[in-house]
């Protein structure tokens, strides 16, 4: 492990915001579980832990996960003066850029792993899991894990975009605007036209967000969708790094 990555891990471990955000996620997770447990007696159907996982995925995909790249940009990327300080220690721009990206992935991965594990635990502890009821709205444990994996890969793609754009622009506000535009708004607009034209459907399926929804609805080929998201990551990382490299710090 490079000294730079070691120092970044030291910094991450001393950054209170990560702990606060984690605590907020955990409280939200438990609150959602408690709420669903509370409404269980009032449902007209047999309520299982699969309902909880389904509801959780909706919240994760549409809400909490959007915050991950924002948090990563806020605390992983560095100001120009900080970059200068680090570069003057003999560390290359390539090391800063890619290690920051690796660290962002590591932080997101740790969050997602712990939260997913706790989610499964809550689902099994508060409810009963019934994987026989497979339906688009009744997500199975395997379906949950596959979707979480897609979600993690998509987060890696989003992190690449957020980290890259911020290093190019050195403006967290605009970087986040561009990040939301290309991660959420553009794919959501294109996806509306997928039934109009086959080409637009293919275009829509290029985006990681669409791949998550397809995985969520179990309508995808997991291997193909993983390849599509990985290709996204490589393209975004390479392009943003090449632009950043040309920029004078």
């Amino acid at each position: 492990m490079s000294n730079y990555l070691k120092s970044e891990i030291y910094r991450a471990l001393h950054t209170k915001a990560y702990y606060i955000f984690f605590a907020v996620c955990l409280v939200a997770l438990i609150a959602l579980g408690m709420f669903m447990k509370f409404i269980t007696p009032y449902q007209s159907f047999a309520f299982t832990g699969n309902h909880f996982l389904y509801a959780l995925l909706v919240v994760l995909v549409s809400g909490i996960i959007m915050i991950f790249p924002a948090l990563v940009v806020a605390f992983t990327t560095k100001s120009v003066t900080l970059q200068q300080e680090i570069l003057s220690s003999g560390i290359k721009r390539k090391t800063i850029f890619f290690n920051d990206y690796i660290l962002a992935g590591l932080i997101s991965g740790v969050y997602l792993f712990i939260l997913s594990f706790i989610s499964l635990f809550i689902a099994m502890f508060l409810f009963e899991i019934d994987n026989t009821q497979v339906d688009t709205s009744w997500i199975t444990t395997n379906g949950f894990i596959i979707t979480i994996l897609h979600l993690f890969l998509a987060i890696l793609a989003w992190n690449a975009l957020a980290v890259g754009v911020n290093y190019i622009l050195d403006n967290k506000g605009i970087a986040m605007g561009i990040f939301f535009l290309f991660s959420y708004i553009v794919p959501l607009i294109i996806v509306q036209f997928r039934f109009v034209s086959k080409v637009l459907q293919w275009v829509a399926e290029i985006f990681p967000l669409t791949q998550i929804f397809l995985a969520f609805r179990q309508e995808n080929n997991p291997l193909l969708s993983i390849c599509i998201i990985v290709a996204n990551i490589i393209i975004i990382l390479t392009t943003t790094f090449l632009i950043y490299k040309r920029k004078e710090v």
């Binding site: 000294n3 730079y4 070691k6 120092s7 030291y10 910094r11 001393h14 950054t15 209170k16 915001a17 560095k78 100001s79 120009v80 003066t81 900080l82 970059q83 200068q84 300080e85 680090i86 003057s88 220690s89 003999g90 560390i91």
Partner: peptide
């Protein structure tokens, strides 16, 4: 160049870390 210590313009630090933590961060990095 690793034998050089420098301050260029305003030194860059992480505002949410303490002075000790900031220097410790750079110590590990170097």
């Amino acid at each position: 160049r690793l034998r050089i210590g420098s301050i260029i313009e305003t030194p860059g630090f992480y505002p949410y870390l303490s002075g000790l933590e900031n220097l410790e961060y750079f110590r590990i990095q170097r």
